[in-house]
Structures are given as C-alpha cells and as structure tokens.
Design a protein around this nucleic acid. Structure first.
Lengths: 180, 180
DNA sequence: CCCTTTTCACCTAGGTGGTAAGAT
DNA sequence: ATCTTACCACCTAGGTGAAAAGGG
C-alpha cells in the first residue's frame, strides 16, 4: 500500500540545467521487533500507547530503492515545486515482484532521501561518490504495521486521506458551518 | 478529449543506450472545411456516409506538439514494448491552456510521429536536422468532429473503448457463450 | 439546418479502513 | 493473544456517448 502521509521535500540549490535522479529507501532504525499489549475492559479492547520490544529483528533482504517517477529531470524542474513521493508503495511480501519497498511489519524504519547528479562525463562512474547526497529527516521515522495499533492514528488518517472519506463522521469542509 | 483509437508504434533500430524524445503533431491534410448532409425519412435522421467540401479551411494557429510523457528515455526502453500515445488529448478550444492539441472541427488531419535523438555533444543544436526523424502513416488520417456523424463510428467506439462499456447492448466477453 | 456546448449516468482504475477468518 | 490475509463497501479521479440546449 501507499505510504501515507506522503514524503515530500522542497529543494533548493540545484544546478537548474543539470539532470538529477531523486530516490528514497528505508533503513532499520534498530535491530528490534516490537509488539503491542491490549488492555481488556469489560466491553472494549484498548491498545497501549507505546511499543514493547519483542525480540531481535527478523532477517531482511537488501533494501529496495524507489526512484521518483519523474527521474531524471532538470534541477529547474525539481526546484519549481514541492516534490511528492506519493506513488511509493510499501509491502510486507518478501516475494513482491511489483518493485514495491519491502518492509518487515512491527519493525521501525527511517526513510532516506537521495539526490543523484547525472554526470555527463564519460567516466562518470569514477565520481559516483561525489555525485550522490543523502538526506535523513528523523521526524519521518515510523513503525510498519499490517493493521493500525492506535486508534488516534486511524482517526488521523481517516481525517486527512481523501480516499478514506467514506469513514468520516462528518465532512471537514462543513465543519465551520455545521458546528461551533 | 483523448484520441481514440490510440496512436501506437512498435520501434526498432534505436541505439539502446542513447536517449530519445518521442512526440506527435497534427498537420492539415488539405485546405478544406467539410460538412455532412442528413437525409430525413418520416421517422429518423440519417447521415450520408461521405463528406462534402463546405469551403476553405478555417485559419489555424501554429500546431502544438505532444511529447510522450516517458520522454526522454533510452532506446532500449522505447523498443522494449509498444509505445502508446494514450495520454494525448485533442480540443477545439483555441484558447486551451491545458497543453492539448488544438484542431479545427470538420477538418481533416494527418497525425505525425517524430523521434528526436538527444545529442550529448555540447553544440548539439548544430545537428538538430540530422537528429530528427519523422514518420507518417496515412491510414491514421481522420476528420475532427465535435459529434459523431456516422453511426458505425459510434458503434465501433462503444464496442472497443472500455470507458464506453455502459452503452454496450451486450458484453463482448459473453458473446461466444450467450450467442451462436 | 448544421454544428457546438454543457451536463449527465455509467463506466474504468485504483486508494481507503472495516471486518471476519486464518495463522502462529 | 497477537498479528496477517482476503475481501468488501465506499471513496477519488477521470474517460465514455447520449441528450438537451444553444448558436449562427
């Protein structure tokens, strides 16, 4: 499924006339597997708001990368507006052949953003190191799940993802009019 | 609206490692404007199956071009499968600002297909002429209309365009089973 | 009369969380 | 008990010709 909210960046400082590839990958934050504990009251099940360490991380195949579908493009094009990775999809299927990013459920991940300068020189492979720059935003870390473990996350997504509009109690557009 | 059926080409003979831009444009077939004649019976209106010349063509602004959205891409990528221009859209709105191809209704057009080799040399502008090749398939000529003038064209489109499935009398998939 | 514009029901295509059943 | 899978109703987004209304 798609990652939501979408990873978005505003880019400055590129050479407007040069070509760049933009891509993302995901690295494990730690070597742990997590789990949730549910409290059972007489009538409802609640999930605790924090994660417990459940043991050592599951083995992972080498991480895939996701190229932004507009790659390659000129610096001017990338800088013109916010770059959105909304086509990026995550899966827990180790045998996936759709090119989606494979993550282990109940593990913590750090999204990474990479910029590759497309070097026009013939022996560009030699300069791979210097034509490559990685950006990490720690606030984008998350725990991968197959089902939401926290009701407030569910509500946040229902409220903000247009495709989940069918689960909203009331239309946010009407809120100022119908409520006070 | 989209052009349907879609213009599609199978490409051979490119340099697999070189970059190419693929694009289309439309040129008038002649300097004429056409019209239809309807026969009126007691109960129905019929259109004749041929076009009458109705005068000299309307003035036209310089034709726009449509770049295949995958451009630029490597020769290997273009040759791998049939290239389909299904995103190309036509309009009769002279003030269109969606980048669609502008055509005059009731005029005849010849689609053209162009291949541009992206020359890596610094002074590539000098070689523009030789890096450019145009292909014309006369069987793709058509008359632009705002409403279909021929019932068989309508039926052909309803039968073959998935988006018009709602107007089909019976599902072509079921045909061998439900009919004989 | 002939053609164009606008709106509409009906599709394709695909992204949501809910839910129930399944797995360990 | 905890997590995963498969399917579903309900959305977004947008491509169809029909039909009615409009224009010259």
């Amino acid at each position: 499924r798609r990652m939501f909210p979408t990873f978005q960046v505003k880019i400055f400082g590129m050479d407007p006339m040069a070509d760049y590839m933009l891509l993302m990958d995901f690295v494990p934050v730690d070597d742990k597997r997590y789990r949730q504990v549910a409290f059972l009251s007489r009538r409802y099940a609640f999930h605790s708001s924090s994660w417990l360490v459940a043991g050592k991380a599951d083995p992972a195949t080498p991480g895939r990368v996701h190229y932004h579908p507009d790659s390659p493009a000129k610096g001017a094009q990338w800088m013109k507006q916010i770059v959105s990775f909304d086509k990026l999809k995550l899966t827990n299927n180790l045998l996936d052949d759709n090119g989606h990013i494979i993550l282990n459920s109940m593990h913590r991940y750090q999204p990474r953003f990479h910029v590759v300068y497309v070097d026009p020189r013939k022996d560009s492979e030699k300069y791979a190191e210097e034509n490559f720059k990685t950006f990490v935003f720690e606030e984008t870390r998350f725990t991968a799940v197959t089902a939401y473990q926290n009701h407030r996350i569910t509500q946040l997504k229902i409220a903000s993802n247009p495709f989940a509009k069918g689960f909203r109690d009331c239309d946010p557009e009407d809120w100022p009019r119908n409520h006070r």
